[in-house]
Write a protein that binds this DNA or RNA. Structure first.
Lengths: 353, 353
DNA sequence: CTGAAAGCGCTTACAG
DNA sequence: CTGAAAGCGCTTACAG
């Protein structure tokens, strides 16, 4: 910047104004500044200098679960980020995704290097060391799909009620042999049936709440939770859902219905059923969660819990923007959910097997 | 930092040393510094101040294609990032993913806000405005799966030769009615058969090279390229591959083989074939590209072009680290590829339909 | 083992 | 319409 100033015989401040307050310069001078900059290869003000002076860097950080490998395989997460980036862009804010390590051993030191003005925390495990370190920085922060933390606004859905409705729907249809396919209960990538101890130590708010909702609805109608196998997948993808269903459907007598905690998993379940020659919903009913676009076009179209992921992202972004402006923000915003009944659910087969 | 210094009656420099050069302090003093910091809620040196002074922020940026929505749906991209983050972490460098906008209208202004020491550019479309703006910043940069840019080191594979081998394999088996399922030819998210004009204007290096390889092998053996339908998908996912195959397999006479430019697409093709009751490889041969883990476990296991994505990421990371150190770096590093023949390919059906 | 000084690149009040 | 000065938070030589 000094180079350009010297070259033109003007002050550094004039260069700064050429970029930040064009109206303060005569158009001719501004043109001369930009032309000289181009010529000397000056790419515009260094964001470090600006950031230090302004106390703002113009970027929002997104903290998500360790598992980069799965975080974006779920259309729900992608829709959320798309809504968030819409809100950020509207304010001229950039978005930085702080990646996890695929081995799940992300180093909390990355937090000390983060150059952001605020943070959106999206479905991170309880006690995640990066989360802990980030909270210490006391950035303006919005939580999404997380347990409450005092003083931090939260965006979410009523996971437990939504899950209860989903399970209720199966009960109403007459199902009594129900199994669950769930994404991670903890950050340690377990894969397989989750026993009682495992279920008691769930580290993800969303998993905890949805299982609790399933439990409440089923147990309330004569299906003891201990009779409901819960297959845990280390993420949310069709492949994992398929593998989980392969395990659950090999049991005799087979479950007549499967509740999945995401549509991606549920789509995998549909696929596994088809590969085994089982008819959905004739032999097996399947319920998803999220209502991603693929749920409606699946074969058969998926009964699922609908929520507006993009709206959730936009809302979180707007709340963070308000926080950055020092405006008051409501401590909790719930996005509505709604059970969408399509044709992947029906009464159980008459022979009950 | 000044607060802590004042509180303890020491200089700011001592505080800095407590964090950056612990050995320069007596352990007792260091402990006092850290304790006071904790007490006063000081989270450690502000990375902005450090960055400005050091001329380094300790973070590598990754520029990838506009489409966040698809970038991570492909296991190949995820493996690449995992390799890259391994190399970055080994040097204590953070990784910042600069997200695109899902609508493909990412604003080049984000570049002016990026706080990074260097850049890895991963399969970005020719002329992408963010890429153009980023190159103007003259950060140390490594290109991956991109066309050459003078002065910038490049990591890649010989896409054209690998594609040629894949197509050759089908020719050798006797196939003459071949179709192609390709991921994006341009950043504009088209979906459907790509005519000649579209194929001439391919904006992604990788798509261009692979189509050229298919073309060379097929045309060289009596299968004119104009007879080979190329179905373009706006990304790389199983769903898109399935939809593409549905379109291609509806044609009479049906192709006896499909070449896909990624395994994700090929897995979708397998699924579409199965849903139509077609046997693979009895009725249809399918070839993928990438050899992601799911290729080997697919049903049937997928014939595909194998490349080591994680190694590619590690290599790119190591080259960027060398660049940041001012070390010399070779201008081009190719990762090996190899056609892995599994059981998704065989001779065409005798009746040829 | 600890400190005083300079300066990284920028922008904000305040003058003129 | 343009400028001189101060300072954002830090760390690096250099002294002592």
């Amino acid at each position: 910047m000094t180079r350009i100033a010297r070259e033109l015989g003007v002050s550094a401040m004039t260069i700064s104004n050429a970029y930040n307050h064009p109206e303060r310069l005569t158009p001719a001078l501004r043109e001369r500044v930009l032309a000289t900059a181009r010529q000397l290869g000056y790419p515009g003000p260094d964001p470090l200098g600006r950031g230090l002076r302004r106390g703002r860097v113009g970027t929002i950080g997104v903290l998500y679960d360790d598992l980069l490998s799965y975080a974006f395989r779920d259309q729900a997460a992608v829709l959320f980020l798309s809504g968030l980036s819409t809100a950020a862009e509207a304010q001229g804010l950039g978005l930085t995704l702080v990646p996890g390590s695929p081995q799940g051993d992300r180093d909390a030191a990355v937090v000390g290097r983060m150059l952001v003005d605020g943070l959106v925390v999206y479905s991170v495990a309880d006690g995640d060391p990066v989360l802990v370190a980030a909270l210490e920085r006391r950035w303006p922060t919005v939580l999404v799909d997380q347990p409450r933390i005092a003083g931090l606004p939260l965006v979410g859905i009523d996971d437990e009620a939504a899950a209860r409705d989903a399970a209720h729907h199966l009960i109403d249809l007459g199902h009594r042999r129900v199994a669950v396919v769930s994404f991670g209960l903890g950050p340690d990538l377990r894969h397989g049936l989750a026993d009682e101890a495992r279920q008691r130590s769930v580290a993800y708010h969303v998993s905890r709440a949805r299982l609790a909702g399933f439990n409440a609805a089923l147990a309330g109608h004569g299906v003891p939770w201990s009779n409901v196998p819960v297959f845990e997948c280390p993420g949310s993808s069709q492949e994992l859902g398929r593998a989980a269903a392969d395990a659950l459907l090999a049991v005799v007598p087979r479950p007549t219905a499967i509740l999945a905690t995401s549509d991606e998993l549920a789509l995998g379940v549909l696929d596994a059923a088809m590969r085994r020659g089982l008819s959905v919903p004739g032999d097996l009913s399947v319920v998803g969660f999220d209502d991603v676009p693929a749920a409606a076009t699946a074969r058969p179209p998926l009964t699922t819990v609908s929520q507006d992921h993009a709206a959730k992202g936009r809302l979180a972004g707007q709340m963070l923007v308000a926080l950055l402006r020092g405006e008051a923000v409501s401590s909790r915003q719930d996005v509505a959910t709604r059970l969408v009944v399509r044709t992947s659910t029906a009464r159980p087969p008459v022979d009950g097997r």
